[in-house]
Design a protein around this nucleic acid. Structure first.
Length: 321
DNA sequence: AAATGGTACAACCGCCTAGTG
DNA sequence: TCACTAGGCGGTTGTACCATT
């Protein structure tokens, strides 16, 4: 017999991920590491398909991911690799460790394809120095370069894995397979990096909060409760805790000591609840550098402990107990 | 200012392969 | 060996945003 089904299609949430969901996912992976995606939705209480969780992690939450603004060098690299490998985006992405296959694919489809088409029809020939489409670099040459790349990557990996040089290679090279098998300290750094990804997302979130954010945060509140209690309850869609997105963002910012978040986020600090303010004071010292998610866990547990106090702008809070 | 069309990107869908019982 | 699933991958879609009319 095979394994049980991945996830029942009913009750699975679709669409954009909320920062709260991201936090839940990252905190879970911080504890258990990536993999066993099938267990993630049940263990976290996320109403997401395991595939969706994996995709979210690999494409957006994983540490070391660079987003937007492809450099000219990256562009050239993608074009040449696409010429060499075809639409094997995962393979291409392996040469651009900071980029995801999805990102590269999107960039190709939206930018580069048109660019190349334009150049081909316009018979201009060049996109810039060393960047020709009408006269692509000979395959042999590229294969040699690829082999050199592989050799360098291997060397970097062996250096990084040697005990004399304990370093969080994974931050600069998330594709490293030893990513989650390193020390706890290393993990902390990695997840701090992951938290930066979330910080960026939160920033965008606060600029453009979706209309459904209240509902989403409700799910999260319950999910947090589940995590704090170590339970496996499924998330409920009832209840409506107030403004948790903003408060959550602020709390998260304070937890990790994000400096990347700009002043736009500071306005939320004034609306912090007493609990959150206390938390902020507690967590300010040496946060971000070490064990940021331990603090998160503490916060989650505290949150579970004081949840009875939570009110929701007139609506009675609903808790899963 | 409103309508329309184009663009960019996040997420989903479906297929394939390797692994498991 | 077979049946079945998880995970990975590439293609496609949905939608928010932006520019133009």
């Amino acid at each position: 017999m095979g394994r049980p089904p991945c996830c029942d299609k009913e009750g699975v949430k679709k669409g954009p991920w909320t920062p709260e969901e991201d936090i839940i996912l990252v905190s879970y992976i911080q504890e258990h590491g990536p993999g066993n995606w099938r267990a993630v939705p049940t263990k976290t209480g996320l109403s997401r398909c395991s595939k969706s969780c994996r995709l979210r992690w690999t494409n957006y939450l994983r540490p070391g991911i660079k987003r937007g603004n492809f450099t000219e060098q990256e562009e050239k690299m993608i074009i040449h690799l696409q010429d060499l490998l075809g639409n094997r985006w995962a393979a291409i992405a392996s040469y651009l460790p900071q980029r995801t296959d999805n990102d590269i694919k999107n960039y190709w489809n939206t930018h580069l394809k048109k660019k190349l088409k334009k150049l081909q029809t316009g018979s201009e020939g060049n996109l810039g120095e060393g960047f020709s489409t009408s006269q692509p670099i000979p395959r042999g040459q590229w294969e040699r370069r690829l082999q050199t790349d592989i050799h360098m990557a291997k060397r970097a990996l062996s250096e990084a894995l040697s005990p004399e040089k304990p370093s969080c290679l994974s931050v600069s090279n998330p594709s490293n397979s030893s990513f989650f098998s390193s020390t706890k300290q290393t993990q902390s750094l990695c997840y701090a990096s992951s938290a930066e990804n979330i910080a960026r997302l939160l920033k965008g979130w606060m600029k453009n909060p979706p209309k459904s954010s209240c509902t989403n945060s409700v799910v999260t509140q319950n999910s947090f409760n589940n995590i704090a209690a170590g339970g496996t309850d499924t998330a409920s869609s009832e209840g409506s805790p107030k403004g948790s997105s903003a408060e959550l963002s602020e709390t998260f910012e304070s937890l990790f000591g994000f400096e990347s978040l700009e002043s736009s986020t500071s306005e939320f600090s004034q609306s912090l609840s007493p609990e959150a303010t206390v938390l902020q004071d507690e967590s300010k010292p040496d946060i971000g550098a070490e064990m940021p998610f331990s603090l998160l866990e503490k916060w989650l547990l505290d949150d579970a402990g004081c949840q009875e106090k939570v009110t929701c702008g007139g609506d009675p809070p609903v808790f899963l107990h």
